[in-house]
Computed example of a mutant assay.
Amino acid sequence: MTSPERSAADATDSTHSPLYLKLLAETAKIGWSELERFFARGVLLRVARDLDLVTVAAAIAEDDKAQVAQWLSSGLVERMQSETAADFAARDPELWAVVVSPWVCVQERG
């Protein structure tokens, strides 16, 4: 699994697409307080730790309906739930996010 901590330059030796590398470069650590407004707008997607955040963002950007539907149906990707938002607000965990307009994909790390 590729970690967002890796820079795009570190990933160029692999077989990742230009889109993947672009999204990887745009992925950043972020605090919950900066994400709350996206949650309020209903555009925040939680990505399970089992998945590569950038791979999910790339599938959304490429409109890979089959793959995204599979993740949604299995609960590996979901619109941020109120309970999860409250938990994140209380704990302020390490979060990484990437924007794939109109969505913001977020994943808890650590």
Rank of each mutant, 00 (worst) to 15 (best):
E5R: 14
L53I: 01
G42S: 08
A66F: 06
I60A: 03
G75I: 08
E94V: 13
D52I: 14
A58S: 14
L21P: 08
E83Y: 07
V98M: 07
L44Y: 02
P93L: 07
E26C: 01
A66E: 14
A86G: 02
W96T: 05
L76K: 14
Q70R: 13
T27A: 15
W96L: 06
A89W: 01
V77K: 04
Y20G: 05
R79Y: 03
A59S: 15
D64R: 13
A25Y: 02
S101D: 13
K22A: 13
P4A: 08
L35V: 03
I30L: 12
R79E: 03
R37D: 11
L72C: 03
A61F: 09
E62P: 01
E94R: 11
T2G: 00
D13S: 15
D13L: 15
E83L: 12
A11M: 11
L35Q: 05
S14V: 10
F39C: 00
V77L: 08
T2F: 02
E62I: 05
S3N: 13
D92P: 14
E26V: 00
S82D: 14
G31F: 10
L21D: 10
H16N: 09
K29C: 00
I30K: 14
S33M: 07
A59M: 14
S73K: 15
V99L: 11
R49Q: 11
E34Q: 10
L44S: 05
T84H: 04
V68T: 09
L95E: 06
A58C: 12
E34P: 00
S14E: 15
V100L: 00
W96N: 09
A11W: 02
K22F: 13
V54P: 04
Q70W: 05
L45G: 02
S17A: 10
T2V: 07
D50W: 01
E5P: 00
A9S: 11
A89L: 09
E62T: 10
A8N: 04
A69K: 15
R41I: 00
R91E: 10
Q70C: 01
M80S: 05
E78K: 09
K29Y: 00
A66N: 13
S73H: 15
E26I: 01
V54L: 03
H16I: 01
R91C: 02
D87F: 03
T55H: 09
G75Y: 08
Y20E: 04
M80Y: 01
R49I: 08
P93M: 08
L35T: 03
G31Y: 06
W32I: 04
T2W: 03
P4S: 10
K29L: 00
T2Q: 07
E34S: 08
L76V: 05
E94F: 05
S73I: 14
L21S: 11
A58M: 13
A69P: 14
V100G: 01
G31A: 13
W71P: 06
D63H: 11
V99R: 14
M80L: 09
L53N: 02
H16K: 06
L76S: 10
D64F: 11
E36W: 00
V54W: 05
R37N: 11
E36K: 01
F88P: 03
E26A: 08
V56L: 01
A8S: 11
L51V: 00
A61G: 13
A61I: 08
R6S: 11
D63S: 10
